[in-house]
Simulated assay, not measured.
Amino acid sequence: MTERERQHKQVLREFDNRRLENAKTHKLRQQEIYKLLPEIEQIDNQLNLDGVSLIRNMFNQLDNREQYQQQTNNLILQKKALLVENGYSRNYLEPIYNCKPCKDSGFIDNQRCNCFKQSLINLAYKQSNLDNLLATENFTSFDFSLYSPEVIPEIGKSPRQQIKYIHDNAVLFIEDFKHTYNNMIFLGKTGLGKTFLCNCIAKELLDKGHTVLYLSSSQLFKLLEQARFDKENLTSNSRNILQAIYDSELLIIDDLGVEAMTTFVPTDLFNIINTRHLNHLPTIISTNIDINDWAKLYSERIASRFIGNYVLYRFIGMDIRLYKKYGTNI
Rank of each mutant, 00 (worst) to 15 (best):
S128Q: 04
F144K: 14
F116I: 04
I166F: 02
L130Y: 09
S218N: 04
R160T: 05
S217K: 05
Y147D: 05
K103M: 13
I152R: 15
K157I: 05
V151P: 06
C115Y: 05
S148F: 06
K157P: 02
K103F: 03
Y181S: 14
L123Y: 06
K164H: 11
N138K: 12
T211A: 06
L187Y: 10
T180R: 15
Y165I: 07
T211V: 01
I155D: 08
L130Q: 03
S158T: 08
T140L: 11
L123F: 05
Q162Y: 02
L223M: 02
Y125F: 10
T190W: 13
Y181T: 15
M184Y: 15
S105C: 09
A135L: 05
N110C: 02
I108E: 13
P153V: 03
L197M: 13
L120C: 07
F142A: 11
D207F: 01
E204M: 01
L220M: 04
C115K: 07
I185K: 12
R160L: 06
L220N: 01
M184Q: 14
T180D: 02
L192W: 14
G193R: 12
G191R: 11
A170F: 08
N110L: 11
I155G: 14
F139R: 04
Q127C: 02
P149K: 07
A124T: 03
Q127H: 09
C198K: 12
K157N: 06
K103T: 10
D168W: 05
F107H: 10
F139P: 01
N122H: 07
I201N: 04
G188L: 09
F142I: 04
Q161S: 10
Y214P: 00
Q111H: 14
K203M: 02
N183A: 11
G106R: 13
L187C: 11
D176T: 14
F116M: 12
Q127D: 08
N169P: 07
S141H: 13
K203C: 00
C198Y: 06
K222T: 07
A135V: 01
D176L: 14
S158L: 14
K164P: 00
T180I: 12
G209K: 03
K157Y: 13
D104I: 10
I166Q: 13
Q111P: 03
D168P: 06
E204W: 03
N122D: 10
L172N: 14
N182T: 08
L172W: 03
Y147F: 14
K117Y: 03
M184D: 08
C113W: 02
C115W: 05
L123I: 01
S145A: 04
T211S: 12
D207N: 11
I108W: 15
I121N: 08
N129Y: 05
T190H: 14
I201H: 06
G188A: 08
K194Q: 06
P159D: 08
E154R: 13
Y165H: 12
K103R: 15
D176K: 15
L197R: 09
F196S: 06
S218D: 02
L146K: 14
S128V: 00
S217N: 03
G191L: 07
K194V: 01
F142W: 12
E204P: 00
